[in-house]
Structure formats: C-alpha cells, structure tokens
Amino acid sequence: MEPQKINKGDRNKIYFLVIVIVALIGTNAYLFFKDRQQSQKFVTVSTEKDKLRLEVEKIEVELDKVNALNLDLNDKLVEEQKLAREKIKELKVSLEKNQITQGEIDKANVQINELKTFVKNYNDQIIQLQKDNIFLKNSRDSLESSLKSISSKNSNLESENSNLNAKVKTAAALKLQTAEIIAFRTKSSGKKIEVTKSSTAEKLSVRFNIIPNELAEKGHHNIYLRVFDPAGNLLADEGNRFEAEGQEMQFSHSIFINYNNDESTYVIDWANPKPFIKGIYTVILYADGITMGKAQVDLK
C-alpha cells in the first residue's frame, strides 16, 4: 500500500500548530518565571520590612533605657530625643503599609541608619553626662565632707575659745582678799556709831580688799551685793536685777569702784529697808558676772 502523500496545505497547518504549541509553552514558561520572581520579590520585601521594624524597635529601646536612668537631661538632649521619637513614629507608620515599594524600603533604610548614628552619639552624650554627674556628686560629697570637717574644727575651736575665754575671765576676775561687815547707826550729829545689837542697827557697812591681779582689767567695775537675813531671805527690790554665774539674779545694792590693782580698801554701806532682827546676816559680792566672795555679821 502506498503511503499517503501530505499535501502542501496540510503541511502548513502542521507547521502552524507546532509554532502555536511552542509559543504557548514559551508563554507559560515566561509567566511561570515571572510569577516566581514576583513571589521572591514579595518575600524579599516582606523580610526587609520585618528587619527594619526590628531595627526601629531596637532604637526605641535604647531611648527608653536613657529615660529609665532618670537623668536630669538638658533642653538640647530632650529636644533631640523628641525629634528622634517623631521620626520613629513616622517609620512605624510607613512600615505598616500593606504595599511598599523598594524605593520606600531604601529610604527607610537610610533613615534608620541616620537614627542609629543619632542614638550612638546620643548615648555617648548620656554616658558623658553620667560621668559628669558622678564627678559632680563625688566633688559635692568631698566638699560636704570637707565642710563637715571644717565645721567640726570650728566647733572645736569655738569650744576651746569659749573654755579659754572662761578660764581667762576666771583668771581675770576680782576676788576678795579680806572682807568684814559692821553694823552702825548714825547720830543726830551725823557721826557713825558701830553697834552689835539688831535693835540699834540701821545700816551695814562692808569693807573689803581685792586680791592683786595683773590680769584683771583696771578701771571701773560694777559691784553688786546680795544681802540675806538670818532666815535666809534675800533683801532686795524686785526691779534690781543683774546676771551672774550664767543666770539672772536680784541684787540688794550696787556701786562702782575704780580698780587699780593696788592695796585699796573699798566700803559699801547698805540700809536695810526692814528692821534688823537677831542672827547672822550674809552679804555676797559680785563683779563682772562672777562671785567675788562673801562676809557675815552676827547681830545680837
């Protein structure tokens, strides 16, 4: 049987079908690879977004760490952090978009790198601020310690000076060398008559000498008397007050004497506002706030 001959028209159809099949295969291959590239590109973009989000979160954590230190930031640092957080907020919004171009990814990368540089410099400033604060604290503590030491020394010096002044004052005090008291009355002629009976006594006369003292101040000194009756009652007016031995006291009488560190004898006459009674009268003398000494007289 003879093989059938394929005419020219059928051959052309076959060629056309082959070309169509090849074209379809090529188109399918192109679409397959294109879809694969797009899928890979989507995966790449998504991965980039996740990486960028992580970087932004790291930057934000670094800024939060600064705030946790509770440092007293200056206005410049506060303003710089505020601007950085605004940029972080913008980046977060941009990275949350469902579709984002590679150009936007690249721009976000640039901004994040700028933020990284900023945070590094910012942290360097914070570290320096901490060092400065530590230095200032140590300096302040050292100064406070020095001030306490100086204050303690001053207190000790004041105490020593006070003790020294007290010793000097005591050493310079006027003290009685001899003292005697006599009672007397005055006759109509003006003549003073010494008496020993309380019924005839009108006044007490205190005669005394002062121990020579080169440290004592020469010149006028106010001498105070306190007179006690035999019952121990102070004989003084309410308004007569002075300070001695660290307290306020009432006095019976006072006079000025001119002290010259010599053998002078001083006399103080005191009139009793009440009638004298039998018994021992005691007179205590004071000068410059210190007790000079005392004397007594026994009236019959």
Rank of each mutant, 00 (worst) to 15 (best):
K41A: 02
T44R: 12
E62G: 08
Q102V: 04
T47D: 09
R85Q: 14
L54D: 06
Q40M: 15
K51T: 05
K76Q: 14
V43Y: 00
I88Q: 08
Q102H: 05
I59C: 06
T47A: 04
K51G: 11
D75N: 13
R53P: 00
L69G: 00
I88E: 13
I59Q: 12
V78C: 07
K51H: 07
R85G: 02
K82L: 10
N98A: 14
L63C: 03
T101F: 07
Q40F: 09
N98T: 09
I59N: 12
E80Y: 08
E79D: 10
T101K: 07
I100K: 02
N70H: 12
K87L: 14
L91G: 05
E60R: 14
S39A: 15
L73M: 14
K41G: 01
L95E: 06
S94I: 08
E48A: 11
E86M: 11
L95P: 01
E79P: 00
K49Y: 02
Q40S: 11
V66K: 06
V43L: 04
Q40V: 05
K92E: 13
K49A: 09
L52E: 06
V43C: 02
L63K: 06
V56P: 01
N98V: 09
K58R: 06
D75A: 15
E96K: 13
K49E: 03
L71P: 01
V45S: 03
